[in-house]
Design a binder for these strands. Structure first.
Lengths: 176, 176
DNA sequence: TATTGTTATACTCTATAACTATA
DNA sequence: TATAGTTATAGAGTATAACAATA
């Protein structure tokens, strides 16, 4: 397995610049030592958060042509896999509070990716479905993410390690 | 290695309730099928985010006696490992923007955990140090996290898998 | 009475511009 | 002029209470 690389970020600035002979060295050298993370990287929360931010950033860049946030993508995925479920069911499955789900859906509906259909059984409920355009956009998004994002993750981590990573993250989310 | 458990969440509600013989079955059964995550859990971003939220939530609970957020903890850790570095250096290492670091530091300083010391070399800079109390609180926090949080993660994942998880997350944060 | 979707609202995070004091 | 710390501010994301329509 590939070894984790040195330390990065400002690694290329390590070399001290040349200095005139007569010039006194200041108390603090002009090129500072890199900051040490110390034990911080041994705490799962820290590494998890930094990795999550990086992944989301890359995700957003990869689906930029479709202008989908990770949250919007997750809604499209879930409505596609579970048509005609109501807002509360979809929102709570994603850990989104019902009030906060309203604006998110408004946006998807205004872009004609998703529709709210008043349920005939229970007229309080709005059943959710993807539109034809919604399915098409989702398909394009999945292809973009697979070919630009996930494939590079497989290259970086290796197929087996990526599977193991997914399994552990799922276990934490479900059982911790 | 332990196998990932079934599905959870509402797993205990699966059994259909008894029903009067004369009562007609409504079109939709009163106990709905669980929502299927589908391929969503195969996308790293989704699993990463859910796991991160769970970990932070648990972290906050574990250090509740000390009232430290993950961000505050990371600042204490970094200042402890790198005394007399200035705000910009500490903030940027943590991915915190300088303006947002001000209030964070104000809070730590008001609680006498950390001090800003005007640098004699460059009077624009504030060098950061932990106070005696700051070191004590950090030590207690580390112990709480180790004994209540990380230890349970090791039990859940296994020691070797936890190490592998940390290595992969670090690799994503640094190299992806 | 309880639930679904909604509004209003508040609080935290994050992001950018611009000021001040120093260099 | 450039940089460190700061202020102000705006935008996401997230949280709770309460209302109308419906059950």
């Amino acid at each position: 397995m590939a070894v984790v690389k040195a330390v990065g970020a400002d690694g290329e600035k390590r070399k001290r610049p040349a200095r005139a002979l007569s010039q006194a060295l200041p108390q603090t050298p002009p090129v500072a030592d890199p900051i040490r993370l110390g034990d911080l990287s041994d705490f799962l929360g820290y590494s998890l958060k930094r990795a999550q931010l990086r992944i989301f950033d890359d995700f957003i860049g990869c689906v930029a042509p479709l202008q989908l946030t990770p949250a919007q993508f997750s809604v499209l995925m879930l409505v596609d896999a579970n048509p005609d479920r109501n807002q509360s069911e979809i929102a709570s499955t994603l850990g989104i509070l019902r009030p906060n789900f309203v604006a998110l859906l408004d946006e998807l509906e205004s872009r004609d990716l998703c529709v709210r259909v008043r349920s005939s059984n229970d007229r309080r409920s709005h059943n959710l479905r993807l539109t034809e355009k919604g399915r098409a956009v989702l398909a394009r998004a999945r292809k973009l993410i697979e070919t630009r994002h996930e494939i590079r993750l497989r290259e970086l981590l290796g197929d087996d390690n990526r599977e193991l990573l997914l399994a552990m993250l799922g276990k934490i989310a479900r059982e911790f």
